[in-house]
Design a protein around this nucleic acid. Structure first.
Lengths: 216, 216
DNA sequence: GTTGAAATTAGTACGAA
DNA sequence: TTCGTACTAATTTCAAC
């Protein structure tokens, strides 16, 4: 019920993400997001103070960000070792063309999958799983993933240590002006015409390869 | 100040994670974590009701989980596209032996890095970055990462779509009894003696390879 | 570990700038 | 829009059980 998250600004299944954004975010909005990411349980009153706006304004913007989807959800970060899920693994999956829908449906049936992203490169997707022991990873890969027709191949690595997980929203060099920052960090290379780079559309790995080979 | 997160139950830099756990988590604790992961802003009163305990008890346990570190932090999940960071990439890094400390120090200086994990397999670490445009990824890899002596090689892929991000804590087959569940999902393969599988120690990729070759 | 009441804080509504 | 204030509802704290 809260597993599907919004597009990453690029077309995942082949459709480009919608361009029309509901809410135009200003610097105050971004500051609010920044604060909320490092303390998701802060009261709106304290939030207002930290951002430097009135309480009423903070409530309005807070609700707007929530309604707009800029804030997707509030969550607690858990120490999975303490919770009994001490093993984390990444499974890189190659998915058969035209079977993405099936793959996603199967994903929904695997609670141990915490994160899944479609990627470019050698594989098509990366999934992160958290389980209680190494055997469960093996079971997961050989008995569950391997049995999905959509899955062509997998490659598994273990996560030995999670060094960093940062609640980061604002680029550090963006001192409040988004356009200035954007042009400042552009290394004068390829300008991509008028398309905002952040809204560029990539061709999916599966899609791209489909154009290269006939079989599958 | 809040970037370093706890070990994943395995030795990251070569040192095994500490075994002594402060708080012994029972099923009620786990249920609390479960609820808090899907709604980090729920009031403790409502939390108590959902878990089926009294408010005072909920407050006690809530505070204990926080103090113990089982709850690392509360955070808001942001739609990065709306926040102006529409590009997400994964950079797989091969790190030179004995230079992990330097690598970690450099990571701390890169705000666009949202997540970094040490992995087994072909590469030594995976970092996830969020930036406003594709050019920033290129800049990041070629100008920043490549200049770190600790970094031997990198491989970059883009994330086209984030399909799933689930706030998952309890294994679905763990109906409340952890030991029953653990034995239930063990596929009768290798039992690892008396060492709890969740506390197994892996040899780091760098470490492992160090034993295989002399040069570097 | 639970319940119930006081103290505090959060959320809402509304007029003024 | 944003702010300030007053009002209402809810939460947290603290006590006794």
């Amino acid at each position: 019920m809260m597993s599907e998250i919004s597009r990453n600004g690029v077309g995942g299944g082949g459709q480009a993400g919608r361009i029309g954004i509901g809410l135009e975010l200003d610097d105050v909005h971004l500051k609010i997001l920044e604060v909320l990411r490092e303390n998701g349980r802060i009261s709106v009153a304290a939030l207002a103070e930290r951002v430097g706006i009135s309480r009423a304004n903070a409530y309005t913007r807070f609700e707007a960000l929530r309604a707009d989807g800029a804030i997707k959800r509030f969550t607690a970060e858990i120490d999975h070792v303490r919770a009994g899920l001490g093993i984390t693994a990444l499974i890189f999956v190659t998915v058969r063309q035209q079977m993405w829908k099936q793959f996603r449906a199967e994903l929904a049936r695997m609670p141990e999958v915490e994160y899944c992203a479609i990627t470019t490169g050698q594989h098509d997707a990366m999934i992160q799983v958290r389980v209680s022991d190494v055997a469960a990873v093996h079971t997961m890969v050989t008995e569950r993933l391997a049995n999905i027709p959509a899955v062509k191949a997998t490659e598994t690595v273990f996560i030995l240590d999670e060094v960093l997980r940062r609640p980061y929203v604002l680029p550090s060099d963006r001192g409040g002006d988004r356009d200035r920052a954007r042009s400042a960090r552009r290394p004068a290379q390829e300008t991509q015409g008028d398309v905002p780079l952040g809204k560029m559309r990539f061709v999916g790995a599966a899609e791209g390869r489909a154009a290269l080979r006939k079989d599958d």
